[in-house]
Write a protein that binds this DNA or RNA. Structure first.
Lengths: 227, 227
DNA sequence: CGCCTGTTTGATCAGAGTCAAAAAGTGTGG
DNA sequence: CCACACTTTTTGACTCTGATCAAACAGGCG
């Protein structure tokens, strides 16, 4: 099924943006759109019918689970992000919708052919992959030495950044795209600790809360010296 | 200065292995070899004269530093690994030799041209980049929920894996390529905790130690249920 | 309204951090 | 080869942050 590239909200920022109109149309023929509701699984770890996708709207999480079944969130995927195994014979991690999402999905075989046909595309994906790598490493660095409150503060900053339209200024008011439990499993903390951290950040005036999900950044600098 | 690809120990496993003899020779003309001794800095965070390199022998670490100057190791690079910024205008993290190392270095401009000239190379680098991404995420997952001893055990397993010639069996006897402090900063622990963890792993018969650096895996299964 | 899920708050506990000092390696020059 | 200085590792005693257990609270939705 063909995709409406003309009205695609990420047509200028996704990997396929490097293609010409004609090339893009050809690629779109091979792809199909898919909608997910919150909690739906896009890929499950171990899947062998590997595919890949560009996220058009919504948000995804990449998760793994420890021996006791506790989730650990390894990455968030935002619109225009690319996800999926191009080389491993099976999916390494679960990919699940954090909110209702819309994707542009390709069979691996077709994406493989596209890589051969359009060298520009391979380069664009390489670029994305390296950015993802930096994100993953930044998430690693985020945990280093910092206290629980500092970690939560840093996560809020990152989420504010992701919620922003402009590429370098965070939004000062936004809604959390995830539950406390999901924040906890991104940081390796517990729900209670995250909740307390948000409480103390608010008490010392770094943020203001609006209901359970609404966040307003009041004094971002103060979050990095968290109590 | 041209490189002796004919005798290169990673000629079949590095990214350039996908090139033909002739293509490889042409690429080698643009590269130069470099030797580093333990502790030498290959790239420093913020560097603008970005370059990239394939590691021929030895080992590298990718590090960042928190506000107090404490190191956090984000990744290890092993022979045939590729390192360097291809797209970011400056280096994001420090890259430092863990042991005496030998590299094959390319100016970004030349590597860029090579990507255009040899689409196969772009694909090979994409593959490597995705593998690095998985490594980084696995390192993230490694910290989840586990106790200090379990984390140290898992790190030993990963290092045994890396020290092995065969791609899927860990070596049961090997030398640690890093100090206790470096192990600690990979895991976000302290030197003392790492030392104690090694002590208890030995006491309960999971490993045997040979001097400060020598490790023998006795009962790998037991490490994952660490005490 | 009552049920269910998600969040907050409180009290207690344990694992890892910190500070301090002894022990084991490593390298140097006599 | 040994004596010495220096670094790295180990061990010990104590502290503190964040996990755990438990219960109250808030919001959605049938």
């Amino acid at each position: 099924m063909s995709i409406a590239c003309d009205t695609c909200p990420v047509r200028d920022s996704a990997a396929c943006a490097v293609l010409s109109e004609e090339e893009r149309r050809a690629l779109a023929k091979a792809g199909s759109t898919r909608r997910l509701t919150r909690g739906e699984v896009l890929f499950a770890a171990g899947d062998e019918d590997t595919a890949c996708a560009t996220l058009v709207s919504g948000a995804l999480k990449v998760s793994s689970y420890d021996a006791d079944g506790n989730e650990r969130i390894l990455a968030l995927i935002h619109p225009s992000g690319f996800i999926g195994e191009m080389f491993s014979p099976f999916a390494e991690h679960d990919v699940i919708a954090l909110s209702d999402s819309q994707l542009c999905v390709f069979a691996r075989r077709d994406m493989d052919a596209a890589l051969d046909a359009y060298p520009k595309l391979a380069r664009a994906l390489l670029r994305r992959s390296q950015e993802d790598l930096h994100q993953a490493r930044n998430l690693l660095a985020l945990g280093a030495g910092r206290s629980a409150s500092e970690q939560v503060g840093a996560l809020l900053l990152a989420l504010a950044q992701a919620a922003s339209d402009s590429p370098c200024h965070p939004r000062q008011q936004f809604d959390l795209p995830m539950t406390r439990g999901e924040m906890a499993s991104m940081l390796g903390l517990t729900i209670e600790t995250v909740s307390r951290a948000l409480g103390s950040l608010e008490k010392e005036g770094a943020i203001r809360r609006n209901g359970t999900r609404g966040i307003e950044l009041v004094d971002p600098a103060r979050m990095e010296t968290g109590g």
